[in-house]
Amino acid sequence: MEIENYIASGILELYVAGALSPEENLEVQHYALKHPEVEKEIEAIEGAMLQLTAAASAGIPPSGFDGIRDELDDVIVFKPSASEKRTNWATYLGWAASLILAVGLLWVYRENDSLKTEIEVSQQEKENLEQQIIEARSEVADTENILNQLRDQNVTVVALGGQTVSPTSYAKVYWNTEVNKVLIDAQGLPEPPPGYTYQVWSLKLNPLTPTSVGLLDDFVNNEKRVFELPNENESEAFGITLEPEGGSESPTLEQLYTLGVVGP
């Protein structure tokens, strides 16, 4: 009775139409295996559909099965080996492509890296050049400044000649009496030994009275060897001695390098 109801429900018609879910399909198959009358009913429904679809058909293609036989041959003969080969080939090709890509990426990365380095180097060079220009300009300005000071009409030039300890030494004092400044041109002095420095003295001659004008500090790094010092003394002569670093209270006359008298 239960089976008759199952058959009458219409589920078998849906089964033949393919309108059921996979789970429902399995359920129908389960019944069909267990109950021959279900199986028979399914075949009858399919039979009716075969008749209907045949009656509504315009027949088979004129070429019939022969029309597709060759295509089936292709499938049988070539498909497995061809597909296998294709898979392997594609796999190798895939790996090869990956490798090439990886190598390519590495190369591009390196190339990029070296370009970056080159840019950095160029950037550094550019900065260096800019720095040099700035330095050159500042040097020109310094030089012009010095030149202007030397040309000032209030400047008295005093030539200092070499003395016993260093006969070849010489120096010049440009004394601007208007602003009470001296520029010492010490180009003719040797570099002082470590721990020593040159000291400039203003001298009164009668009686001989030395007064310290200042130190030629940082002598080695002053490329122009031009030093600016204040001088408010009524100088009659200028002398330069070598003194221990920091200078001395009074000049060490044994180390008098240059000496010159202010002209009338």
């Binding site: 559909m49 075969l50 679809t53 045949a54 509504a56 058909s57 315009a58 027949g59 088979i60 293609p61 019939g64 099965f65």
Partner: peptide, 12 residues
């Protein structure tokens, strides 16, 4: 067995 049915369904 089935070509006539299948071709018919397609044509329909």
């Amino acid at each position: 067995m089935y070509a006539e049915n299948i071709c018919g369904v397609i044509n329909t």
